[in-house]
Amino acid sequence: MSDIAASAGWWTRLANPSRFLALSNRLGPWLAGGTVLTLAVGLYLGFQAPEDYQQGSTVRIMFIHVPAAWLAMMCYTVMALSAIGSLVWRHPLADVSVRAAAPIGAVFTALALITGSLWGKPMWGTWWVWDARLTSFFVLFLMYLGLIALHRALDDPARSGRLSAILVLVGFINIPIIKFSVDWWNTLHQPASVLRVDGPTIHPSLLVPLLVMAIAFTLLFFTLHLVAMRNEILRRRVQVLRRNAARQIGESR
């Protein structure tokens, strides 16, 4: 029981932005340091890794492509969880979290698409194929862009949090449906031939750098998300200060 009470206490205490700022100030440097360290190790291991007998040196593209793709999906999951927090518990930081995550997710989705295309050119011979995975990622990218457009259109933070949370959740429910339909569409239109990349299992010499890079990217995401959340909190504070200042001027006249 005391466990639950303690965690609830921690949770509500975190709802206070000032405490969150203090915590993020303490946590931020550690996260950033961890990111730089794992990124360096990952890159070193990545370039030490032997070339794949089929893909040649292009296999190194995978060391950024796969983690970026993983982040693109994890970021949407983080946003969906925050959206639940925002709608159900009205946790004030959840709004901030959704808003801060969207641009980061869009950038990593774009990175996954670009590196996928750069990998596809030497492997498949074209920059873009309407392959099931590429296509669903493209749709995901569009969803991120839609969210950012909504954020830009809504400037009142109190209202915009819940509205974007609803959109995030509707999108999250839709992701499996979209994935399923794109797979269906792809098998209908294209014979699955060259596009099977998940053939043989990955050799450990490639798997280790891949995992390290995935960890590095995850840390990178949390670092950026933390700082972006901090910026968002400060932005709202500036808004409130400006409003208060305007009111004071109005009263003194």
Binding site: V139, L140, L142, M143, G146, A149, L150, L167, V170, G171, N174, I177, I178, F180, S181, V182, W184, W185
Partner: peptide, 11 residues
């Protein structure tokens, strides 16, 4: 906002 969500319907 809605167009990406309509992809399954279209397909």
């Amino acid at each position: 906002l809605i167009l990406p969500l309509c992809v399954p319907v279209l397909i």
